[in-house]
Design a protein around this nucleic acid. Structure first.
Lengths: 169, 169
DNA sequence: TATTGATTGACAGTATACTGTCAATTCGTC
DNA sequence: GACGAATTGACAGTATACTGTCAATCAATA
């Protein structure tokens, strides 16, 4: 067996969760773009559109909590969605700081149109695994993401939690 | 049960592999930075250093294959590592286009020093799961990444494959 | 009511990631 | 040896993600 320059081999990278997560994310984005490319939407833009449809009139800060998305990044994402006429920003009457987000008709139509492509993409990501293994992987990953939720800069604050973050929160 | 503005709910995002992969990657990077912050290395810079240590005199194109890393992005990563004096670039005598990569002594020392922090980070990412579940998740993810390898722009070409990519390949 | 503290969106700066292009160079082939 | 194809590193452009800062605004309270 040929000796290595040191005891640290590439296994110090390849077999580690951090590397596998990065690599899987790379692959997932690649598949999404392949399947949904004709709609000119990135995975993040898609998530934002879905969240705005579910919460019409949401503001950027709350949106960032709903999709676990950095507030700073979200600004440019919304700008791009606005430039493509999928989203409208209207000033709030109650709070002059806030801009409320709404889907345009075109945005809602796009969302309906893209769903089959998104479904294909999601299916392709797991396609190489046996059905039982897909279920297992998703279950474990859901658990792990949920249990690690507080770690990242922008923890997910799902819909239910948001109801308490209004005037009262 | 209150009705939603449409049939598309946030489950169209939360429960899907693409979202979970993005979220997990977010969390993993966050943990890595927390544990290894004092060494001023990102996960990608760490992977590059390990690969260069394992392949002294590798060029940027081969390095990109060893860590499944876009060639365009890699340029700036190497620049930063060079600016921090962890890596040296030397012109090749055989091929004037190529710049060969080597760890500096400081770079090698840094790599030894950071290992415990990296191990802590990797452990923390999976910590919320039971040991058996950690094993299962890593096994499934390794499989999936491997089986999807050809999908992304820069498929992983591990060390063995590289030996055939030299003059003969 | 005046002040303090928190929130909101905007911005600057850094670091991945990707697409695409380009010139210099090398290689395969004739 | 010349010529077309491939490789290499560099660059421009776009899109996440993060840190941090700032002014405008709002809320809480002294």
């Amino acid at each position: 067996m040929p000796s290595k320059p040191s005891d640290i081999t590439m296994d110090a990278v390849y077999t580690k969760p951090g590397y596998l997560f990065r690599r899987m994310q790379q692959i997932a984005v690649s598949i999404f773009i392949e399947e949904c490319g004709e709609f000119d939407l990135t995975p993040v833009q898609y998530a934002a559109l879905v969240a705005i449809q579910n919460h019409p009139g949401i503001d950027a800060t709350r949106l960032s909590a709903v999709i676990a998305f950095d507030r700073s990044t979200l600004g440019s994402v919304i700008e791009r969605l606005e430039a493509k006429r999928h989203v409208e920003r209207k000033p709030s009457a109650e709070d002059k700081r806030v801009k409320l987000l709404y889907l345009t008709k075109a945005g809602a139509a796009l969302l309906r149109g893209i769903m089959p492509a998104v479904d294909r993409a999601q299916a392709r990501m797991l396609a190489p695994l046996k059905p039982a293994d897909r279920k297992m992987l998703m279950a474990l990953l859901s658990q792990l993401v949920d249990l690690n939720n507080e770690v990242s800069r922008v923890p997910l604050r799902a819909e239910d939690a948001l109801e308490h973050l209004g005037k009262a929160g």
